[in-house]
Every structure is written in C-alpha cells, then in structure tokens.
Amino acid sequence: MFNYIVRRLLQMVLILFAISAITFFLFWATPANPALLICGKDCNTERIAEVNASYGFDDPLIVQYGRYMSGLVNPGGRELGSEGSQEHCSWPCLDRSLQNGLQVTDSIADAIGPTFWLATGAAVLWLVSGVLLGLLAALRKGKWLDKLSVGLALFGVSFPTLVLGYLLVFVFIVKGGLLPYPDQANSSPSAGLVPFFQFYILPWVTLALVNAALYTRLTRANMIDTMNEDFIRTARAKGLGERQVVFKHGLRAALTPIVTIFGLDLGALLGGAVITERIFSIQGLGKLSIDSVLGNDLPVVMGVVLVAAFFVVFANIVVDVLYAFIDPRVRLS
C-alpha cells in the first residue's frame, strides 16, 4: 500500500509537469504582447524593449519556461526580474501578475479560501441530498416517490447554473429581501456563522443543484443494479431481514462507486467554480481565473490552471487510496 501511494505521488508530479509544460507553451506562444500590459499608458518602443529585456520576455520560450519552473522546483523560490529592482518570490513561486504586479502565489492564496468554503459546502449539500433521494427512489422503485425523484433529478440536471443563480438572487435577495446582498467580508466563517451562512447559502444551492440531481440518478441506478446482484439474493436466501439486506449488503456495494466520483467532482471544484463565483461576486479562484483570462494576464492564468490541476490529480490519488480501503478486492490484489 505504501509503495502504491509513493508510486501514485510520483505519477502525480509527472502529470503536473506535463500540464505545466503544455500550458506554458500554449499560452506564452500567444501574440498578446505581455510587455504592453506592463508598461501601461505612455508606451513607446523603447519602453517596451526595456520591459522585454528586464522581464526576460526576449529570451527563447524554453529559457522562460526553465526560469518559471525554477521557482517551483527550487525550495528557495527565485528572484523576479523587474525594472531596476529584484523581487524575491519564495517557494512555490508562480511568477507575478502582469496587471497589478502582485505575486500570483499570494493572489491564489487569498482566493483559495472562498472557493474552498463554496466547494465543500456545496459538496456536502449535493452528496447528502443526492444520495438520500436516490436511495429512497431505488427502494420505492416504480412508486410515486421514485417517479417524483426521477423527475426532480431530470429537472435539476437540465437547470442551467447561470439561470438558477440569478433566479435565486432575484427571489431571495432582490424581491424577497430574505437575505442581504453578498458582502465579501462574510466569505469566511471568522465573520460569524450567521453572516457566513447567509453569504454562502445561495451559492451552495446554485452549485449543488446539478450535482445533487446527478448523484440522485447515480445512487438510484447503482442501488437498483446492486439489489439485482447475486450476493443480495444470497443474503435473502440466508433469511436476513429486508432492512439488513438493504443496508448491510446493498448500500455498501452501491455507494462505493459514488465515493470515487465524489472525490473527483470535489477536486475539480476546488479549482474554482467560475460561474457561481461570478454570479455571487465571490472572490475565489474562479473569479481570479476569469478576470485573468479576460485581462490576458498569463502568469495568473498559468498559476490558476496549475493549482486546479493539482487539486484534480490529488483528488484522483486520494480517491484511489480510499477505494482500496473500502474494497478488499483492490486492497489485497
């Protein structure tokens, strides 16, 4: 098991490396002139040349990539070149924004908090509601509760996040006045639990609806499949009561695949929920990434992509290890 985890971690480093290279060369190869962004309003050719030289934009791409990676590989970080002065960027160094000159690592660190609260809260919401509803539907297969949940799930899967978000804002904030307009100051629990929940409740619902619907369908389908398995028939043939058959034998097998998918979905969300963050003006990774994309701020884009990829790959590993603990067939083979 230990060897397996080490091997997976090495694999993760390799994949992240590949992603960093692909991302860097794709983005830095764009014609958007980064120096133009830095030198600002009174720009002339000399200024641009100056900026290019001091930031190293003149160097071949491979050299620039090497320099970029040195900040991630070198535990001491690296020195960022700028006009007339050097700036230390400690590990893990992701360069600095072309727009505002802030170090990308710092901007990302600030943005991770809100995204974390948004993603985990929504994840709990969709996991609990999806699994419960799916389970009830499977156990009442063909009855009205099943039909209702199948219908609800289809509705939820088809409801576009962008529409839902604005709809909720309109109903609960604009017209209903039940919740205050979002205030960025409440985006962490340290602001007090009530404002915190008031801040996040609508974003959580918005973000969770589609996945709750998907999980309902998945749980229902898995549970129905599992209840048709031979080992369920065996459990009944032993004389076990229906409750034990369902909860001890059925549920465990049916929920195992959901653990996998849940980990991957959560991992993907930790990289930023672009639409929800934009609708509710949450200053998270998603907002950071869309702002940097629209502003051609390549170092920030690069940084956010790398962090998001890290979460995805890391979630993959966590899920695989977790799966091995749940399923002895994986653990012991």
Binding site: I19, T23, A268, G272, G286, V305, A308, F311, V313
Partner: peptide, 23 residues
Amino acid sequence: MDILLSFPTLLFILALTPVIADR
C-alpha cells in the same frame, strides 16, 4: 488520456479559447 482527464477542463477551455482565436 490520463493527462487530458487531469486537466481542469472548464478553466482550460476558458483560458485557451481566446488564445487560440488570437493565434
């Protein structure tokens, strides 16, 4: 496939679309 599946897809699409159009 592994690498592609590890990409944060929406973010990447977001970032890449203007880049490719520029290109």
